[in-house]
Design a protein around this nucleic acid. Structure first.
Length: 285
DNA sequence: GCACCATGGCCAT
DNA sequence: TGGCCCTGGTGCT
């Protein structure tokens, strides 16, 4: 269930438990047998998250690009992974010797095993090896990731401000902004009070700067919590403990329910194949 | 127990 | 525009 925050958490797990280790690579399901044979026995030398893409470098020459898509997940087994749980990171304590290595669950495209930790990848939309030049070229086509220190929001704004496409569609384009998915786009536009159909070219630089800043804050909060929470404390029911899922959004998945701010029923429609949610009373900017 | 849906994105048409 | 990848969660029975 990945937007950019989940991918960043997964990358953190790989840095903590796999980077610097030689890994045995295999493809229990068989569909990545050739690729696994190439990286088998190499050391995981670098881990990189960019938007919804994760890159793992093996040795010097092989980059593995993984995109989880809608169904993909990493399932980890092993020691010392507490704290990396939730969302697409599923953990099991396999520290008991007789339970290691555990049998693959489901169709595992790729298994990486350090001897102490195992990462099983299933259902990804992309699991491909790339040469360093291919990796560079791929990165060049990705948009700006608000979670990255090296991101340049001005580059994203230049593309947005040149387009007649609705801002709600532009926010989803990974070659413009990397890491925003359907939930964050709906919630960011609500929090910014922006009408989702507003053409990108009509967005002011001030509009964009505020959107970018808020996106970075929400994504970082998502990394911290391991889930997406977009409501401000004053806009959700007061209660102790973790924020409930149904209290986490202003408009996403709330079609027909009253807007938390004004009570108007939340609207929804399909835009470019994805469900868009918004409040027509609050979002008039 | 099961049908349906979903936080993506690619590709054929 | 729709199929597909092929998983987990949800809500119905």
């Amino acid at each position: 269930m990945p937007e950019g925050h989940s991918v960043r958490r997964l990358a953190d797990a790989f840095v903590a438990r796999f980077q610097g280790h030689r890994v045995a690579a295999s493809s229990p399901q068989g569909r990545f047998a050739d690729g696994a044979a190439i990286i088998d026995g190499l050391t995981l030398s670098q881990v990189d998250a960019h938007g919804k893409q994760m890159f793992l470098r093996f040795g010097n020459e092989a980059w593995l690009r993984v995109h989880l898509g809608m169904y993909g997940m990493w399932r980890f087994h092993g020691e010392g992974l507490a704290g990396f749980g939730r969302e697409s990171v599923v953990l099991s304590d396999a520290s008991a010797p007789e339970s290691y290595p555990p049998a693959p669950v489901g169709a595992v495209r790729l298994r990486l095993d350090t001897g102490r930790n195992i990462a099983d990848l299933s259902g990804p939309s992309a699991c491909v090896l790339m040469t360093p030049p291919e990796h560079d070229a791929f990165l060049a086509g990705l948009g700006e990731d608000p979670l990255r220190e090296d991101a340049d929001p001005a580059k994203a704004y230049a593309k947005i401000n040149a387009s007649r496409m609705p801002i709600a569609a532009l926010l989803m384009r990974q070659d413009i902004v990397a890491g925003i998915g359907n939930l964050y786009r709906a919630e960011l536009l609500f929090r910014a009070r922006l009408e989702p159909h507003k053409p990108g070219r009509d967005l002011t630089r001030a509009d964009w700067d505020a959107l970018w800043r808020d996106g970075g804050e929400l994504l970082r909060e998502g990394v911290r919590l391991g889930r997406i929470v977009c409501t401000r404390p004053e806009d959700r029911p007061k209660r102790k403990g973790p924020v409930r899922r149904e209290d986490s959004f202003y408009v996403a998945h709330r079609a027909g329910l009253p807007c938390r701010i004004c009570g108007t029923p939340v609207r929804s429609e399909t835009m470019a194949g994805r469900m868009l949610f918004w409040c027509e009373t609050c979002q008039v900017g």
